[in-house]
Design a protein around this nucleic acid. Sequence first.
RNA 1: GGUCCGGUAGCUCAGCUGGAUAGAGCAACAGCCUUCUAAGCUGUGGGUCUCGGGUUCGAAUCCCGACCGGAUCACCA
Length: 606
Amino acid sequence: MTLEQQITTLAKAAVKALYNVDAEDSQIQLQKTRPEFEGNITLVVFPFVKTARKAPQVVGDEIGNWLLGNGEGLIARFNAVQGFLNLVIDDAFWVKQLEAIDADDNYGRFQSPITHHQSPIGAQPLMMVEYSSPNTNKPLHLGHVRNNLLGYSIAQIQEANGWKVVKTNIVNDRGIHICKSMLAWLKFGNGETPETSGKKGDHLIGDYYVRFDKEYKAQITELTAQGMDEETAKREAPLMQEAQEMLRKWEAGDPEVRALWEKMNSWVYAGFDETYRRLGVSFDKIYYESNTYLEGKSEVEKGLASGQFYRREDGSVWADLTRDGLDEKLLLRSDGTSVYMTQDIGTAKLRFRDFPIDKMVYVVGNEQEYHFKVLSILLDRLGFPFGKELVHFSYGMVELPNGKMKSREGTVVDADDLMDKMVEDAKEISKDKVNTLQGITEDEANEIARKVGLGALKYFMLKVDPRKNMLFNPAESIDFNGNTGPFIQYTYARIRSVLRKAGEREEKDGEILETRGLDPKELALIQRLTEYPAAVRTAGEEFSPAVICNYAYALACDFNSFYHDLSILNEPDAHKRALRLLLASNVAKVLRSAFALLGIEMPERM
RNA sequence: GGUCCGGUAGCUCAGCUGGAUAGAGCAACAGCCUUCUAAGCUGUGGGUCUCGGGUUCGAAUCCCGACCGGAUCACCA
């Protein structure tokens, strides 16, 4: 039972005994005691002031005294200040908490989600998390990085919350945008390959996507100069015509187009795999739109047959969503080709055929909120039970100082370049630390720089509220000081160093712990450790890695303050030394666990 | 125009299910390394929580209305 639960029970008994009030849980308002007052936990007494017909100060004192007399030693002292009852919890309680944390190898992990009704009793419910979902026409950029980091972290967090999680990726490997790259490569590529150019496959393809856009724009300019209006020019430009023709050929299974498509996609996948590996993200099941779009088409046909959708005179198929307060939505183009929505319907169907999914989560940017609103309705209308329940985990955009990134205009921060830069910076900074890193090999140094550089990047992106847009300024390097990944990694490395030294000195496990006269810094640390499971729950409910970041930062701050003020190994009192060692070791354990939820690795030294 | 999201220190962000004097980091300034890793610790300065109403013992937080910024409403994805 947590401290909050115990105090809640006691507080209810107190107001019942004192004022004959049957308090609701919601009336027992507990908060952490502010540092300027003595105490660990604070009961807000305002909710009882009215019924007690006494001044807040009096009510505070009365409840405080009752708790002191009936708390079975849990409460050591109290002070009441203007309606706030600050409770000092007995040291022995905290030491017991620490021992319990130490004994729990899965501290902060839960057996099952808080509430779940669909699954049979006892079965672990399954959550599928879709993230990444790249197009195979360009390399990954900073926006994808945010998506990948969020998706991976959300999966870890939900797993810790008791879900069985299947991480999935839908690769957008077909469509007009792919044809654009292919066409540009055919026309201007001179047979260039990753091998001949030395370029990573995804970057090579991306270059041709940009090339297409450049040539296409030139054609538009030319046509409008000849007097054509811009709309028509965009439609009639030869390159666009050819790209559309290529898409039709692709859908018709034209062997040449398919062969080219497979070759170019394989280059891209090799590139993506490398980027994913470096980012540290992975998938349990990958879907390809080239395999799911036909399924989507057939679902749309079924919907057409059952009267859910309708066909216009030009042959295009639409859904009328006006009764849901939305617009009409295109599902199949007049030439019969499918659109994004069609594919998503097919993908959803296959996924639910493949897995007993209880909850489907799409990690996709907030610019697609409308799309998922529509998808949810369409799936529901087509008779899929999961339609209504789907979760669009909608995150904010990454913006540059001068606005949004635009891949076609080349104003993107490339994922590979950014990772290179971060690791380089980490390496550079670590050069000043030769004294602490002496004696390590070049490989070890590189490995530390990799972990720290990536840690800085990941923490930077995960610490902000996922729903909000965030700013990235390429001109300013990502910090390694302050509220950053490296700060927390450093805290961990410090602890590991102390623990290594303790091992060398044969500090014994099982030494009796000091249980009285805890230093405020020790106590604050233990209390912070006890808050970890709640942070994991909140992060899960809110789909927010930022909650974990904030928690880990607070824990690291508490530890550094403790570390600065109190000596661990040089403490002469063996009982105190044992307590501090145990404390340090569990701080390291929780920091490591928290960072694992973020997908950030810990260096043993740095 | 409809819908959705945001507006907190010079900058980047916490806090938002109502609670005590609104917090961090960066940047600036001043201290702390013969002692467990100074990527650290301590301190100083910095605020009309966009504005105006309302709800109440109490509002950055909830409600209403403005203003500003962003997204979206495609035979794009």
